[in-house]
């Protein structure tokens, strides 16, 4: 049996269905610090969260984490976080400089 070409086998996943990793900083306002936001997020969206750094005070919560999941699910999770009032930035913070 001839070997299958790289593209003839499986159909290519749509961009939003491809798995990806995102490295993000989440900044929580004081009002959300007591709420288990990340637990809620993993109940709502099929994404894996992996915290790498965190600093929580009574004034602000800053969490650096990695999201693993389908691109569409990560985008939806970010949208949900922003709607709650969490600031979501890439691990580099401001990529857009002056």
């Amino acid at each position: 049996m001839p070997p299958r070409s790289r593209t003839s086998g499986a159909t290519k996943a749509a961009p939003d269905a491809r798995p990806q990793q995102s490295r993000l900083w989440l900044t929580y306002p004081a009002k959300l610090i007591k709420r288990p936001v990340l637990w809620e997020l993993t109940q709502k969206f099929p994404v894996v969260t992996n915290i790498r750094q965190a600093s929580i005070t009574d004034k602000i919560g800053i969490v650096c984490l990695e999201f693993d999941g389908r691109r569409a699910d990560i985008k939806a999770a970010i949208k949900w976080l922003e709607k709650l009032g969490v600031k979501v930035e890439p691990v580099e913070f401001n990529v857009i400089e002056s």
Partner: peptide
Amino acid sequence: YDEVNRLCAE
């Protein structure tokens, strides 16, 4: 701004 910033990082 935040969307544009995240896309640039990607």
